[in-house]
Design a protein around this nucleic acid. Sequence first.
RNA 1: GUGGGUGUAGCUCAGUUGGCAGAGCGCUAGGUUGUGGUCCUGGAUGUCGAGGGUUCAAGCCCCUUCACUCACCCCA
Length: 465
Amino acid sequence: MTDKIVKPERPGGFLDFLPWDYLAREKMIKTVEKVFRNFGFDPIETPRIEFLKTLAGETSDTGKNIFKIKSAHDNEPLAMPFDHTVPLARLLAANPYDSKTRKGIRLPWKRMAVGPVFRADTPQSGRYRQFYQFDADIAGTSSMLADAEIVAVIYQALKGLGVKHFKIRLNNRKILNGLAQLVNINNRASVTKDDITKEMMRILDKIDKIGLQAVAAELQAVPQNAYDMSPQLSDDDIAKVTTFLSLKGDNKAKLEQCRSIFQGVKLAEEGIDELRQILEYTDSMGIPSDFIDIDFSIARGLDYYTGPVMEAVLTDLPEFGSIFSGGRYNNLVARFTGNELPATGASLGVDRLFAALNHLGLIDNAQQTVTDVMIMRIAQDHDADYIQMASELRQIGINTDISLLKDTTFKNQFNYAITRGVKFIIICGENEFEKKTIQIKNLETRKQEELPRDKLTDYFTSEQE
RNA sequence: GUGGGUGUAGCUCAGUUGGCAGAGCGCUAGGUUGUGGUCCUGGAUGUCGAGGGUUCAAGCCCCUUCACUCACCCCA
């Protein structure tokens, strides 16, 4: 029948989850979800497919990472979301609160979203094309308390997962944009000042990987052509940037020194004030200050950020990159309404974090199956009795499997139960049927008990207590 | 887009100086009376990624091409 065998391949960057992976990851997701709900974030779900224009907006430069979808029935191009934030902005724009009907979204609003997002990148280790993102956002307030709550929820989520060593790094786009005012950047033939500013942030963001020297060199590089966005800073400006990036001391000290550098640059001063407020709030929330790091180099890639930006890294595994990231994006909703709506939020990369935690040995993937009990079918012509046992156990909430093996020898079924990772087996052969008993064996403790057939469910109900 | 690596059975991979295409797992047929990850006997399975070249002879050497993968870039 089969003309041609289809290889059991899947595209790179897309993962399968076998039960043991799925169950371990599910545990992790539930842990994070619990923390987020604890902070009052309500769950929502948006579709796996949106209009391309919704996701890409007017800019086409982010478009290269978006999976586009062709369909015979839609004229408007469709695409798959690359994060949960843009769909959230659409949702906010489409569901304003109506005070008469009392329907719609009452601001400020805290919500979380869990689900896969898609990026048409080239896959690599720790970098997938479909990955689960856990997203928490607060819309409708400019208060830095909201940003501090996002920091706090990240902190608690990582703590809850058992991560010991991590840092939440904070910066503010306003300071970086202030830096662009402090140094001398001019429009060029085919490149705007904005483009150069973005390029400068991109270079600063690399400092962890390539070091201050290399960053300075890149900032000074001479543009190769009319479209090259190299900032080409002067020696004077480089001196300013390096002192800015080399600020030392605790978070408050760094902010104070930063303030003196940016004296008179209003935008940057605003940014510094915001960070100071966030630190005060997180202090009140009891987050130890050594988990928070003011780091003026971090910029975050997404270009919709307008204020504080943040990312979390595992200090034991810096090579895994940021595991959690976010920031304030006050004008994303304006894409859909024309009006600004302040919002802030962060996303956790579940699959990357899972890989990292696995690496750290914090993932328990011992559980192979949800089956608690397997009923062996050893005696011939007793299927009705075995089925009855299974029904009784299922009724009281015990996950029960009845052997489906064709080979009904004891040994074969016994080995099957062990390799499946089932915890209990029920052994009931001719002998037991005659005596009206059953044998229950705990495969973990290797203990076996014989009890009357009608005590089957009692064994497990008393076990639970 | 740039640079490394790898393509052989469903899976993981051996394959020597060029000389009949291999193993383990899995699958499959049968046997093995009930306690720890079975055992015994038999069987099926290939466009050696694709195309071209050198040679009496190519999985192996040469050229082209494709796919996958890792790193850079960027990001979760």
